[in-house]
Write a protein that binds this DNA or RNA. Structure first.
Lengths: 179, 179
DNA sequence: GGAACATTGTCAAGGCTTTGACGTTCAACC
DNA sequence: GGTTGAACGTCAAAGCCTTGACAATGTTCC
């Protein structure tokens, strides 16, 4: 039975504050569900913000930097080989238009190559150039160093539990997924 | 020992694919850390996308709809009472400029009131109007219904474990937090 | 074959966010 | 007390994403 924390909550400790306050005023709200979603949202946000800030120091060349979404696209292409733009969008979670614009940028820097498919002339095949592979290897290693810094807070067993719980959570049915 | 899944992974199953592929080519990458962060990121993204899609049906009035960030701001003001804009930004995780713009919108619809503070004439005190309170109660109840749909996939004990693991993860030190 | 329909990548428009700058107001310090 | 410094809210610029439209190409089905 400890004292409630001092007067000024911050982004993270506000979760407690909000759940308590809302569940007192709105009886139809489930505090458990609210806490779960809010915790998940804010934890991911904090983690993403930190990893993005660390990534900001990585320079692509003297003029441009590798954006967070740029790295995501490189990851998709590195892991899944030559792919049509539509598939890249589905695997990266972005719209086709966003991928089209981002690829334009990456292609201008010589990291990915675009060539029209021969089987289906509507589609374009995207593929990492050798320079793109080298850039991805360098940048993702740096990015993963930040991931390791975070992951080290949990034991291996706890990391497995966390991934397992999230995986089970994703088996929720009747979900509005991206088209 | 089951067969690997069929040829075409989607946004969620791509996590497995990517972790396996990258850890084969980049030895300095820690697969555990990568899987943890990527799972967290994509699970939250999927959940947010679904909840946002459900929220899209809620109408503010005949012309405007309540955006996802609008609801966040209403939650902050509902839970923490009258607040300066700076505090609202800190608690909602947005920049002061973004809050300023969003509040402009909410104030135009009569949901929040702005009045200059008397103690510090630089600051503005933000507060829910009675209509804002009523709107928040209605919209957040609907939003929480979606949260309950997701939370129901886990048992109460699992929900507690998940929140506990995320809380422990947030105790990582030397983190770049928002100013 | 040809007609209706679906799909792919791209463009334009709009929305939302961040960063950096600014005027205004407060605080600190000699 | 006047000056130097800081903090607050707002504005302008830029970036990134989404949706909806479109031309080009494929597919289906009579």
């Amino acid at each position: 039975m400890r004292e409630p924390e001092a007067a000024e909550p911050d982004y993270w400790t506000f979760v407690d504050h909000a759940v308590r306050s809302v569940s007192e005023t709105l009886p139809e709200v489930d505090p458990d569900a609210m806490r779960l979603v809010m915790t998940l949202h804010r934890a991911t946000d904090l983690l993403s913000y930190d990893l993005h800030a660390r990534l900001g120091e990585i320079k692509l060349n003297e003029s441009a930097q590798l954006s967070s979404t740029g790295l995501r696209l490189l990851l998709v292409l590195s892991a899944a080989g030559p792919l049509e733009l539509r598939r890249v969008a589905a695997l990266s979670g972005m719209s086709r238009a966003a991928v089209s614009a981002a690829v334009e940028n990456l292609a201008a820097n010589g990291l990915v190559g675009k060539e029209p498919s021969q089987e289906d002339r509507r589609t374009v095949l995207l593929q990492l150039t050798p320079e793109g592979q080298e850039t991805f290897a360098r940048c993702f290693a740096a990015y993963n160093a930040g991931e390791q810094h975070w992951a080290a807070t949990l034991t291996a067993e706890e990391r497995g539990q966390l991934v397992g719980l999230l995986t089970k959570l994703m088996q929720t049915q009747d979900v509005q997924r991206r088209a």
